[in-house]
Design a protein around this nucleic acid. Structure first.
Lengths: 130, 130
DNA sequence: CCAAATCAACTACCAAGGTAATACTACCTC
DNA sequence: GAGGTAGTATTACCTTGGTAGTTGATTTGG
């Protein structure tokens, strides 16, 4: 089940565009990434085709254009990429990654409280919904 | 400065052996990884050579054997790999990754308190040292 | 109706990670 | 000294991500 959907940097950038807009043509994706990446339009088109083969996006035809949209959610990708990192680098222990983040990345304790609060609220709502 | 030292899965497994033991020959690394990976000895040897080219390990000669040892620490690798994930997947916001971990990976709040305690203690010691 | 623009498809490279057989070399043993 | 053994070097192949030129079909503007 756990599909381990890993994306490269460009693939991820493309997915971000698709997630934000719901769907887009190759030209639109290219336009969106042009500023910071300056890639050839064909590069985007090729990557889109590869990504479709890989199964992370699909397209429908509109006239002579392909309109692509994601088949995996941002949450799924996050999850599998974080899982992979946790397995590879922290021996499967997510708490160790949290520790690392607090120690190395200077995540403020107040921020942490805030985050925890959000989680707890969410859990509460979940229980209520039972 | 920030070298962005990314390691593949096998490379990471090899590094773990080297970090644990301080140094090891190709045969020793192979022996250590044999059980769970079952790779050919030459595969390990080839990978070690590639990793040395890449600069993450180095070797000294002892008789006709090469004894490899890490040139980068586990902490450095962790840091750059986590940085990369945070940049790619969480738009550079480490707190977002913490949130994800708490929400998706069911990190227990008690665990969190524990982790935070460790961090705070460390900060205290740091201040004392001033 | 023809030329220019628009798209997708095809083809081609490069780098890096991974995997391994084969070749070479030096040493050790009989 | 011959042969096996241990160990490194060479070579080779596959996959995936990334990058892009060229080609071919289609559509549309003049």
């Amino acid at each position: 089940m756990t599909d381990r959907t890993t994306l490269g940097d460009l693939q991820h950038a493309i997915m971000r565009v698709l997630w934000r807009r719901g769907e887009a043509t190759a030209a639109e994706v290219h336009a969106a990434l042009e500023p910071e990446r300056g890639l050839a339009p064909t590069t985007i088109a090729t990557m889109l085709r590869k990504m479709e083969t890989k199964g992370v996006i699909e397209h429908r035809v509109e006239g002579r254009q392909f309109i692509y949209r994601p088949t995996v959610s941002e949450a799924e990708v996050r999850r599998s990429m974080v899982d992979e990192l946790v397995d590879r680098v922290f021996a499967g222990d997510p708490t160790a990654l949290v520790g690392h983040l607090l120690a190395e990345h200077r995540v403020e304790p107040e921020e942490l409280d805030h985050v925890r609060q959000i989680i707890e609220d969410a859990s509460d709502r979940e229980e209520e919904a039972t």
